[in-house]
């Protein structure tokens, strides 16, 4: 999915949070958004993700404004993901159940994604009892399972162990290569951005810099 942002303004109490006259995010690429704390990274992601609706300007997804079809074809993994108070299996299966996929195919898909993220041993654990690294992997699995056209990630690897970071980065890249899905990652880790991103956007005081 291609994104085209035009005349985006967001204010809070007269303070400009975002001011982006024009920004294009290319289809099928991994784009990193980086910048200091308070530079507007997460706000931008919230707006693109359709969670923050209070802004001026327009965002076009493949030329269209946000609609129901676009919403069901993109997803967003929060910095601190919320997992359901049910088994990891049910967490990951949820998006497919919403899409009325039949049970056999759900089971197969969940099994496959568990293996990829190396979390098959968690399948029967409760979602709300996992560690930070485990939660991130389950949340990513839940996002990837329905093969979204646009994947939004907010600091997917902050505060977790290096081993998990490696797995997460590997699967994000693999998703991008295999499905040609567009990925947007907010990260404060410039090294990570360089490792996995095709493009990097640097935000400073709500404006796009170099």
């Amino acid at each position: 999915m291609e994104l085209y942002i035009e005349n985006l303004h967001k204010k809070y109490d007269d303070k400009t949070i975002l001011d982006i006259p024009r920004l294009k995010i290319q289809e099928g690429k991994i784009t990193g958004i980086t910048g200091l704390n308070g530079s507007g990274k997460s706000t931008l992601l919230n707006i693109i993700g359709g969670i923050d609706k209070e802004f001026e300007g327009s965002i076009r997804y493949n030329g269209k404004l946000l609609n129901k079809e676009i919403a069901t074809n993109m997803t967003y993994v929060f910095q601190k993901p919320y997992l359901f108070r049910r088994k990891v299996y049910d967490n990951i299966a949820y998006p497919l159940k919403l899409r009325k996929v039949n049970k056999d195919r759900i089971e197969k898909a969940v099994q496959e994604i568990l293996e990829r993220l190396e979390i098959t041993d968690l399948v029967n654990k409760k979602g709300h009892k996992l560690s930070g690294g485990e939660s991130q992997k389950v949340a990513l699995a839940r996002a990837l399972i329905f093969e979204p056209k646009l994947l939004l990630l907010d600091e997917p690897t902050s505060n977790i162990d290096p081993e998990s970071i490696k797995v997460l980065e590997r699967e994000i890249v693999r998703f991008n290569k295999e499905t040609n899905g567009t990925v947007l990652i907010v990260t404060h880790n410039l090294n990570q951005a360089k490792r996995i991103c095709d493009d990097i956007i640097y935000l400073s005081f709500g404006r796009v810099g170099n």
């Binding site: 969670i51 919403a71 899409r99 839940r142 996002a143």
Partner: peptide, 27 residues
């Protein structure tokens, strides 16, 4: 609110999110 957001990002509509909230917060 967070559960509603998660339901939305995973492709659910407003009825899906109310059902999810009741199920998540049933205790």
């Amino acid at each position: 609110t967070i559960i509603e957001k998660v339901a939305f990002t995973l492709g659910g509509n407003s009825i899906d999110s109310i059902i999810l909230i009741i199920r998540e917060l049933k205790v």
